[in-house]
Write a protein that binds this DNA or RNA. Structure first.
Length: 765
DNA sequence: CAGGGACAAAATGAA
DNA sequence: TTTGTCCCTG
């Protein structure tokens, strides 16, 4: 009996169709990963295909790992021989394998957003650009768009025509590319574009892989961009056994060049393609599915399909209107407390989804207060933390000394007294002699202009790097990491700082080193390059694992491919979801809203049993309250699917400021004398002379928090314990207000330069 | 060169 | 409200 017997008829049809091009249109929760894994197992076990003749491409490492695991479950160790990976990792691998044929240096660095911005800043300096509305960021965006369209600098220039602006961008693009080449570096886009281009230029190399991959599979085909599309075509061109799986309704990566047309036109690209639709959903209740179907039905640009399920009607969807974002967070947390308490759900059963990462803050604060376990996917990514990036940059420089961007990042971290001026001398020497910075530093005696002090410091840095470089030949990966941490002086720097944050940073680096050990233990090819590549291509999803017992917070984008019994979608408001930008664009082009709607569809279909949709009347943005309207997507869900709409409002304990007064503020958490957790808020601002301010503050206060401020002579400090007070420098009046607030007002005398106002709230135990 | 203040900009999403 | 950059001073 074939293993395909375990599939439903549509799934079986898709998995059994192994000859020729196949398009599987798989709705959310219809078992597409199942189809892919069974198809691969079927090929290996029942059709006798060698695993190394099979290619499977996904978008995230997590998806790739999951697929390998599931195939392994079916066919055993043979699964290890299959080429499974993300587009980016497979391309990186191909570029390194074929480096000689392609004329590349195989130790190339992979630049992330930070690095490419740093590189672009250098280009800006070289071109002396001071134009206000030309930022490195915007130029990079344009270059990235060009790359995704497979437009190289020369083509870009020739298409620029008479437009001075375009010409300038073309120049910057050219210079940026030259810079990356000089640094022996590729950015994310390059990994894909270079591979396609190299294959174009080296048909004999391409042919090798075409021969090799008898069967190719591509997951999430709706999110492929131009180079990814071309790569698929290139690799599958010989055997033509290309199986693409996707859902046009879940295409959410247009912003990074994904082209919906790739999936919509698949049948045109391959007229002999067989198309299979998977429309039976095994995940969600009828009501949730109906909501999703109704929302997505408003899109025009789609193949059209309707999910259905045998499952239960299920619970009604909860629609909740909240006064503020803070109140919204509190509602979510209160609900979660119930659900995970008497509700019988585990924390790991629930996800909180939002449109933008910034929204996670209010939610996190409330969760922290509640003591519920949670993890956040992707907001402050581990590998983007400063200390981690710094240490990694040292390592990167050891692997690729030509990496000027990397060298600039760490040559003065920790502080060695090597400033821009000194580095400019080195740069000049490098430029004059066609060297990279690292090599230039090696010839310090020939660098002109440096004073003795700088020369000594740079020499010290050079010695460190040479030591590390020598150690690299013998040391294990983790040993090398530890050595970098110590020898660079980074560890000492953190120790000297002697703060809890520095302590935390030290622990983070230790964690990185632990990961290096694990990497060596589990990989056959545990080289420094392989390690750096893995980290560079890691997605935020990949960083969270083994937290099945915690509530997950993430963006809607990160949630794709996942499912949870309980899902909260927060911030269902116009100008947030859909974003202001798409609302704006949709005035000219009604289609512009469609990607947002697909994202909404993705969110809804993550839920298995319970779905909560929340929106607010007002929300903080850049430090001030803005009014919000409910999202149009809410109106697209039929009323009968909702339970009674709930409205949650309560006292807003934040400081309010009448008039146009603006304060700089900061808040921090600390313990008071009796060991209670206290949130302290300090407001300070340089004051114009003799101005009168008035505002509300909460009544509860903790006197001892402010004593340090009171003592400073150019500060006036006010806590609620002050009833009447006056200093020579100004006058303070505090009186009881209504409710939980008390009115504070201050009149400032002419010689007051600064004022600090602090109040504190006791945290609930 | 480093540290601090003033001021401007920021945040859609991500490999 | 937070973060980054520019400019000034010691």
């Amino acid at each position: 009996m074939s293993i395909l017997e375990q599939l439903n008829p549509a799934q079986r049809e898709a998995a059994a169709a192994t000859k020729g091009p196949v398009l599987v249109l798989a709705g959310a929760g219809s078992g597409k990963t199942r189809v892919l894994t069974y198809r691969i197992a079927h090929l290996i076990q029942e059709q006798g295909v060698a695993p190394w003749n099979i290619l499977a491409v996904t978008f995230t490492n997590k998806a790739a790992g999951e697929m390998r695991e599931r195939v392994e479950h079916l066919v055993g160790d043979l699964a290890n021989e299959i080429w499974i990976g993300t587009f980016h990792s497979i391309c990186a691998r191909l570029l390194r394998y074929e480096a000689e044929h392609f004329g590349l240096d195989r130790s190339f660095s992979i630049y992330d957003e930070d690095d490419r911005r740093a590189a672009m800043r250098r280009v800006f300096e070289a071109y002396n650009i001071n134009d206000k509305d030309l930022t490195p960021r915007s130029v990079i965006a344009q270059i990235s768009r060009a790359k995704n369209a497979m437009v190289d600098p020369m083509t870009f220039a020739s298409e620029a025509g008479q437009s001075a602006n375009k010409k300038l961008i073309a120049d910057l693009y050219t210079a940026y590319e030259a810079d990356l080449r000089r640094n022996n570096a590729l950015d994310f886009d390059d990994l894909l574009v270079e591979t396609v281009r190299q294959f174009d230029n080296h048909p004999n190399v391409l042919e090798k892989y075409q021969q090799r991959f008898h069967y190719a599979h591509v997951d999430e085909y709706q999110d492929t961009n131009r180079p990814q599309y071309m790569l698929c075509r290139q690799l599958a061109d010989h055997h033509r056994n290309l199986c693409v799986v996707g859902d046009d309704d879940q295409s959410i990566y247009q912003f990074r060049g994904a082209d919906l047309r790739n999936i919509l036109d698949f049948e045109r690209d391959y007229p002999d393609a067989q198309t299979v639709r998977l429309e039976q959903n095994y995940r969600s209740t009828k009501r949730i599915l109906e909501a999703a179907n109704q929302v997505i039905a408003n899109n025009k640009d789609r193949k059209g399909k309707a999910l259905w399920t045998d499952g239960e009607e299920g619970h009604l969807i909860e629609l909740v209107q909240c006064d503020t974002d803070r109140r919204e967070a509190r509602f979510v947390v209160e609900s979660l407390r119930q659900l995970t308490g008497s509700g019988g759900y585990a924390p790991g059963d629930a996800a909180i989804l939002y449109r933008t990462n910034a929204q996670s803050r209010a939610l996190e604060e409330e969760l922290q207060r509640s003591g519920l376990r949670y993890t956040i996917v992707g907001s402050i990514r581990f590998y983007e933390r400063r200390e981690i990036k710094d240490v990694l940059t040292y390592l990167r420089l050891l692997a690729n000394p030509a990496d000027d961007v990397g060298l600039r990042r760490i040559i003065n971290v920790p502080r060695r007294g090597i400033g821009d001026t000194s580095l400019d001398y080195v740069q000049r020497h490098a430029l004059n002699n066609g060297l990279n910075l690292f090599t230039a530093i090696g010839q310090l005696d020939f660098v002109e202009g440096l004073n003795a002090r700088a020369r000594k410091q740079i020499a010290a840095f050079r010695d460190i790097m040479e030591d590390l470089s020598a150690a690299r030949k013998t040391a294990q990966l983790a040993e090398l990491g530890q050595l970098v941490f110590e020898r660079s002086g980074y560890l000492q720097m953190l120790r000297d700082e002697n703060t809890p944050e520095a302590q935390m940073r030290e622990e983070n680096v230790e964690q990185l080193i632990a990961f290096m050990t694990e990497f060596s233990d589990t990989r056959e090819e545990a080289t420094l390059e392989a390690f750096l590549e893995e980290i560079a291509l890691m997605s935020p999803m990949d960083e969270t694992e083994g937290n099945g017992n915690a509530i997950t917070l993430m963006t809607l984008h990160s949630a794709k491919g996942l499912e949870y019994p309980v899902v909260f979608m927060c911030g269902m408001e116009e100008n947030l979801f859909p974003t202001a930008r798409s609302v704006e664009e949709s005035r000219r082009d009604p289609q512009a809203i469609e990607e947002e709607r697909r994202l909404c569809y993705v969110g809804i279909t993550r839920a298995r049993e319970r779905l909560y949709l929340t929106y607010t009347n007002r929300r903080y943005a850049y430090g001030n309250m803005i009014d919000c309207d409910p999202s149009r997507f809410l109106q697209e869900i039929p009323d009968e699917l909702f339970s009674v709409k709930r409205e949650v409002v309560d006292f807003n304990p934040r400081m309010r400021k009448p008039g146009q007064t603006r304060f700089g503020t900061s808040s921090q958490r600390e313990s008071n004398r009796s060991g209670q957790q206290v949130r302290k808020k300090v407001v300070e601002k340089k004051m114009p002379k003799g101005v009168h301010y008035e505002w509300d503050a909460p009544k509860q206060a903790s006197e001892d928090l402010f004593s340090d401020l009171v003592d400073q002579d150019d500060f006036l400090a006010v806590g609620q314990w002050v009833r009447h007070a006056s200093w020579g420098k100004g006058q303070i009046v505090a009186r009881d207000g209504q409710g939980e607030n008390m009115k504070l007002s201050i009149r400032f005398g002419p010689h007051v330069k600064k004022v600090a106002v602090a109040y504190a709230q006791l945290e609930p135990a």
